[in-house]
Design a protein around this nucleic acid. Structure first.
Lengths: 144, 144
DNA sequence: TCACTTGTAATATTATCTATTACAAGTGAA
DNA sequence: TTCACTTGTAATAGATAATATTACAAGTGA
């Protein structure tokens, strides 16, 4: 019933890559220490962020880098990168409504537009925030 | 990663209660036939809808009834009734960020406002649609 | 070559969702 | 009252998904 923590971990990773870029060798092991998770979890998420064009990695070589500026990455980009936007959509439609019942036969179609609208509202909100804003909020917290 | 099908089942149940109110004895077994699920699943959801003041049920007696008019029930009311709005919120924050790391120590607080905004956008959209509209869409589908 | 890295498969461990059985208890009609 | 029906709910099982871990192949640069 909750959206996977891969999403918040991915945000954490991106912020940490930028925050430590000039002071640390940023590796999956270092990041997993900050996130409080396993290096393999971090590597898998890193792979998804790489596939989405958000970060650059090269095997063997130290140094994970952002492929875009923070201001050009939205929460939605990250959300999508880690697979939260599935083919099936946010809402799980029950699978076996009775086709012999007038309500069962039509309810999915009748609901789908309204639920898609709700999902779009969520997406629109995520698209309206960039990682630069999250970084700004993070710096404020660090300094307080 | 998807919102439980209890939500769409609950919508289905409410629409079916209204649709069949003058032509059928509406019981949990009848509803489960329309939904394509088990009567106990339906009874549990019915219990949640009852607790939320959306339907009236009395033990033993046949006849499940709406406690409100369809126009006074929003998708959000149903969403909340079946427990989709949890204390924890829609997004699962990773549980062990490193308190010894400046990013790990602050990232949750820095993200929370933005993610709450996104959640509120979803809720606002669900609040803007009533079950009367879903019923109207259902009737259109049935007639076509 | 060596010490490091990332990539990924395989597996284990939970947690959650969904389904099912069983039975207690309420209700109204015969 | 008795009977046939209902809902309420506990207990359990099974399926699916989320998260964690181990192990190792393979890339990189000193």
């Amino acid at each position: 019933m909750q959206i996977t923590s891969k999403f918040t971990i991915a945000i954490h990773i991106i912020i940490a890559i930028d925050y430590f870029k000039d002071s640390q060798a940023v590796t999956s092991t270092f990041l997993s220490g900050s996130v409080g998770s396993n290096p393999v979890i971090v590597r898998n998420i890193m792979g998804e962020l790489k596939d989405a064009g958000i970060i650059d990695i090269s095997r063997g070589k130290i140094g994970i880098r952002l492929a875009k500026e923070l201001k050009d990455i939205t929460l939605y980009d990250v959300y999508k990168a880690v697979g939260c936007v599935e083919d099936n959509g946010l809402f799980h439609f029950h699978e076996n409504p009775n086709a012999n019942c007038p309500v069962g036969r039509t309810i999915h179609k009748a609901m789908s537009k309204r639920l898609e609208d709700a999902q779009q509202a969520l997406h629109a909100s995520l698209k309206s925030t960039t990682l630069a804003e999250v970084m700004s909020d993070t710096m404020k917290e660090i300094q307080s």
